[in-house]
Write a protein that binds this DNA or RNA. Sequence first.
RNA 1: GGGCGAAUAGCUCAGCUGGGAGAGCGCCAGCCUUACAAGCUGGAUGUCACAGGUUCGAUCCCUGUUUCGCCCACCA
Length: 893
Amino acid sequence: MAERELAKGYEPHDVEKRWYAEWESKGYFRAAPRSDREPYSIVIPPPNVTGALHMGHALNNTLQDILCRWKRMSGYNVLWMPGTDHAGIATQNVVERQLAAEGKDRHALGRETFIERVWQWKGESGGQIIGQLKRLGASCDWERERFTMDEGLSRAVREVFVRLYDEGLIYRDNRLINWCPRCHTALSDIEVEHEEKTGHLWHLRYPVVGSDRYLVVATTRPETMLGDTAVAVNPADDRYRGLVGGQVLLPLVNRMIPIIADDYVDMEFGTGVVKITPAHDFNDFEVGKRHGLDRINIFDESGVINAAGRQYEGLDRFAARKKVVEDLAEQELLEKIQDHPLALGGCYRCKTVVEPYMSMQWYVKVAPLAEPALAAVREGKTRIVPQQWENTYYDWMENIRDWCISRQIWWGHRIPAWFCDHCGEITVAKEDPASCAFCGSAGIHQETDVLDTWFSSALWPFSTMGWPDRTPELETFYPTSCLVTGFDILFFWVARMMMMGLHFMGEVPFREVYIHALVRDAQGQKMSKSKGNVIDPLTVIDQYGTDAFRFTLAAFAAQGRDIKLAEERIAGYRNFANKVWNAARFALLNLEGFAPDAVSREELNLAEGDKWILHRLNETAREVAEALAAYRFNDAAGALYRFTWSEFCDWYVELSKKDLYGDDPERKLVAQHTLWYTLEHLLRLLHPFMPFITEEIWQALPKQGPTGAIHESPASIMQASYPEYRSDHSFPEAATNMERVMEVIGCIRNIRGEMEVPPGREIAVLLSCGSDTSLTLMKHHEGSIMALARVSDLAIGRGLERHGDAALQVAGDVEILVPLKGLVDVEEEEKRLTKEIAKFDKDIDFLAKKLENPSFVERAPADVVAREREKLAEFANKKRLLEESLVKIGRLR
RNA sequence: GGGCGAAUAGCUCAGCUGGGAGAGCGCCAGCCUUACAAGCUGGAUGUCACAGGUUCGAUCCCUGUUUCGCCCACCA
């Protein structure tokens, strides 16, 4: 018996809410720390606590959920580890903005109060994204949810820091770093985003001391001249040879600075003279080091000119630029200004132009860590899919520079280092020390800097599983099976997890990395708030339902290409969900009184149509499994879409009506069984992609009773097994036969359509078969042909007399004749025949030429040649029949 | 300056290891056929960016060109 009736159309909202709550409360998402089942594990890329679900998250988590649900149904002990990232700078910014709105700032609050305030914010409005992931259907093991700043993870962070420090892999240094003058913190190299802008090249005149010459320097940043400590030329440059060793008078500040020679200077560029500002330019810093130049820092931490900038003190860097240029112009020291393209570096959090800035920072020495991380991918211990990304990974790892890990903000893991006021030594320890480890003085104070957010996320695959303790989780689930992520964090996150995982666990953090595309808008633009082209996943879910949305994402997730998301496509897959829904309604209507456990499939006398759909279902199961195993989500979705709509709904449902509505109880039972079996398996195949609708329908389907041995019946489709290919469901002969029958039906429909015979009008058809095999086959499927092609009078025979007044189509060796009398006019049929003949002519011409070519016949594989010959013969035969028909029809005029 | 990717129907895109190209939407025609009009049936539409090469045969492999997109990079 059907459990309950389904509503007329699929209404996702209530269904989604109901089933998610059920799954979660029943603990279906839970992983077993120990189990006989094979483990499968994925750690979620932890979204920022400040985050709201965007398209990137939606895609990323849909794909992970598909994998997890698929593996879970396939019998694996699945752990999908969820959590969020404290997102240092981003979160601090959010709370600072709040404070600003209240007219406060963090310095007024003080560090401790501020951090309390951030925790409070996190408790109240942080992590809303978790709820949004649930709406997406994510089957994470929520009881294990972690946060990068929670106690366990903080312990892991300290452990790692101390060990790396003890190994000499963490050090401090005073050098140029990327500084965000708005966030007031250092940034690592990859936290700077370069953008092509058109700037200017200012040509400035520096008077040569003891001469009336000028040296003209070209610069993109004239204001930094306040900190110049030399000008440089190429040693091979004849133009300036005599001047090297001399001095110029730095304008405005009237300082004498040397003229030096350095290979770094490109003679071709600009004037061949470069101003050297070691404290504000990475190249100049290096030059300065080689020549022992002073480093004059002219900025404060907000990018405002300091006392070293004399009369410019207090001016913002951009204001200072304007003023410096004006003043130089006034003194006729500005030679010219050219437009000049340049790549401006901006803070990845706030887009402010970053400043190269001298400061003392903490670094990780990465080369020794990168080595094994490179080797692991080269040796295939971790496989990156699509493989092309391996090159990007290698390239970055091979040229990796030390990682600046200290940040001058408050929200984050405070660096576990204590400075001694007495002896000046640094004590680094896991537990807060009471005294200096070197001199024993109690006068110590902790480093105020915190760690880069990515430092803690680098540990995510093992810190979430309880490291540094040796836990059953680590033993079972590390290395994780797969990491699903976007390429935008390949360096930030993936590469660093590889380094840390190998170093601390001695084993790669994941066996495979699947890198998916970026979701763009329909025009291919990156979605961004400023462009206003953002599509909110939650709005989409509200409008079309989660399942339709998920299916759309999967269907678009082709490897190596970005996803341009157009809303019409989601509507298309909403229609698909509705199609599934209605197929289920049809099934339930016709499964009245059917109990799966009352029949054993082995005893059933399957009809050819039954065998065909079972065969196709089986093939589809194989295709889906193969596609998922290769992360070809679009292929898996496509196979399911085609099977569901074009085979199950379009053909099987129609074929089955004859028996379902008929009065032969045996035929009816067989049809019911196949209908039930196919739908039930189809739902399971679809479940990872469309979890909600499949559960809703599945629950309404008739279940096996207590005696049944046919089929397991767990409480949820989530726990049902994922259909696998089975050799006893392979019916290739039935499949071929059905395809022939379908072709004949297609031919009749084509005549009807082309002749514009209304669907309501039943017609007479003659099938003239060229062989006994065809005759038997057509006779066998007489009923189906009549029903599906709307034929009232079907005559089937061998070599039936063809009268002139019939429309003709040919399918294999079967001629399909539709008497025209009273149906259509002769001219229409003549037109149709002429069109068909022309089509064949083209094909025949092509094939004939090919087969006349001796080198093709000699060199192409025999089976290819044979196939082409067969095609040619078939086409020629069809053409002949059509031509005969045309002649006969012509006589009727 | 290096590297990667893309160019296929009006639009958005599939097309795995070479044997004359597919889907969805849109379009045209006909249908309220008792699961579904968010549907059914039929139909039209392509010098697979360009130029060479390899091959019996190229959308697919190779070379070059053009146009877009992305990543990396310290030329002031």
